[in-house]
Design a protein around this nucleic acid. Structure first.
Lengths: 342, 342
DNA sequence: TTGAAAGCGCTAACAT
DNA sequence: ATGTTAGCGCTTTCAA
């Protein structure tokens, strides 16, 4: 089934004009007489003419669409980011094509190829937790495709980057635990490859140091898939609970890590906060409804999406090659609730 | 910044062939000699040639992209559906363009126009809770655009439709409440315009009837925005609690209705299930972690997305106009947990 | 077996 | 003020 649209040619034929005149009239060119304009505009309106964006794209060598690569859209943090992205993109006449890596490097590479082949004008990327090698992105970047990294950024490429102050988020959360009297604070961390993991680890360590606490690497457990797989969280927690001094508080460094931590506690009948305290990075809407309600570090996801998109579109539409790349850092927010109250 | 791709012309020039020969070689046409083919293919491989999909779209009058309209992607149910949609679409070489109505009729209309103007090949729609008038969709449909409705469907249009057995979902949940001994079962329902609301209401009523319970419309409260706005849920519950016999159980007919119900209970210090039981339609991953854990009706969202997309693409690629439209009904599943245990 | 040319819908340089 | 024409990248007659 095809669905045939009205073209400029149809209008030209109907009105006995040339296609260029119609085109110019539609674009309100100064060269066209008011009468002709009126005629064309009214007729176009009437038959509900819509310019064919594909023809325009071919002509202008731009598709007015931008690609997004995230690990999972079914993750509040990322779906909120996408909301932010869309709010700006649609405003500026771009549409977005979303691809998910599901935390797989291989799928990320495939998706990048796919998006590139769909002739996108720019790319918004948050890398997968498996990603070490960046050739797939570097290649496109060198050929001139504007790329903006958000949240999970990479050092090796010079582009705009938008992140949350992960150091501060982890620092504040850890400090809050220390001040609440917890002694053995474990860090349930994400993939070691990710920028956010390192930043959060640094914030955690610094908070410990600033409060005269010893830093013990045994209290750090990495989960390669960022908690997507329950078993990796279970393994990590099992190991933590084997320590001589069991942790009395846990800092969950990602949404899934935090919720799967809760799932583990429930399964093992460990009570929060009586047996152990929990604070987690989370953008779920539901954390206040859990019981105990969860202390969380919340990230300005929507704003992050908006800002990244503004930077990307600015670069796409810039006449001259962009030289000065920005690194924007947004503030996270700590919400103190019952899960960290002794 | 533009990012110039290799074209057939470049290959032709480099190899001293005509563009048509190159084109044919790339498509493995029988007319081309093995040597030429090999030459072209290898060269293309080398310089990483990718056909320009926009040029193809213009030529073939199809964009290989499908539009999706949902109310919110930051809603587990819909993000799971989108995952299902993508899994099929990408497999078959289509990309998806997602638009959100945020439950606003006006935005839905704008989005539909927008998607249509981006020359999509087909449309997957779940209407907003405000949508009564369907002209925006009928119009496109009559002009031949394949449309598949999922979840929130409409009667007035003859298309493929994929839904969950909402009647059964609500029936089972209500019956479970009755069998658990609850007497005054209220129904916190979504927008009256939505098919799912009516279907769930019917299931609820039938369960009451089958168990000899009187049906009292006072125990039904509609929320136009399906719980997106906390205040509407608050108002609905306030009214329910003013009844002579306060409800001792609530059936939440959508994710947000259910979670905002919990938020209300928390605020008013109403204990579940001691003061009141709660069962809700929900696809959140977290409902088992709430305490009490939540009894839910879970819908096969991913499968729904997959099935809808299969039907849509089948119709798009069908040579002859599709006459026989299917109405597929997927089974929901009741998970009994603590929130309905007396 | 290969090439030349037209055309998809649109814009813009170049006539008139 | 309006028309003619070429061209964006590709496929596909038609011609050689």
């Amino acid at each position: 089934m095809k669905f045939e649209a009205v073209t400029i040619k149809d209008i030209a034929k109907a009105l006995g004009l040339s296609t260029s005149t119609v085109s110019r009239a539609l674009r309100d060119s100064y060269e066209i007489s008011p009468e002709t304009k009126k005629l064309v505009l009214e007729y176009a309106q009437n038959i509900n003419y819509r310019p064919n964006p594909i023809a325009l794209s071919l002509k202008e060598k731009r598709s007015r669409s931008i690609g997004i690569i995230v690990c999972e859209i079914a993750n509040s943090f990322f779906s909120q980011i996408i909301n932010g992205i869309e709010s700006i993109a649609y405003d500026k006449g771009y549409n977005v094509i979303i691809a998910q890596s599901h935390e797989s490097y291989e799928r990320e590479v495939i998706n990048v190829q796919y998006l590139a082949s769909r002739s996108i004008d720019g790319l918004l990327v948050s890398v997968s937790s498996e990603t070490k090698d960046l050739e797939h992105l570097k290649n496109l970047h060198e050929r001139g495709l504007p790329i903006v990294f958000f949240d999970r950024i990479v050092d090796e490429m010079t582009t705009h980057k938008v992140i949350v102050d992960n150091f501060k988020g982890a620092y504040d959360a850890t400090e809050h635990l220390i001040k609440s009297g917890y002694k053995y604070i474990a860090n349930l961390a994400g993939s070691e490859y990710l920028s956010i993991t390192k930043e959060r680890l640094n914030g955690y360590s610094q908070a410990l140091a600033d409060h005269g606490r010893a830093f013990d690497p045994h209290y750090i457990q990495h989960c390669l898939h960022g908690g997507m797989v329950y078993e990796e969280v279970e393994k990590a927690l099992d190991d933590l609970f084997k320590l001589e001094h069991k942790p009395d508080a846990i800092l969950g460094c990602a949404d899934k890590l935090t919720t799967n931590c809760l799932r583990y506690f429930k399964k093992k009948n460990i009570k929060v906060p009586d047996d152990i305290a929990l604070v987690g990075f989370s953008n779920l809407d539901l954390t206040d409804l859990l019981s105990p309600s969860l202390t969380v570090v919340r990230q300005p996801a929507f704003e992050m999406g908006q800002l990244s998109t503004e930077l990307l579109i600015q670069q796409i539409e810039s006449k001259r090659p962009v030289k000065d790349f920005e690194r924007r850092i947004l503030p996270p927010q700590l919400f103190t609730r019952e899960s960290t109250g002794l």
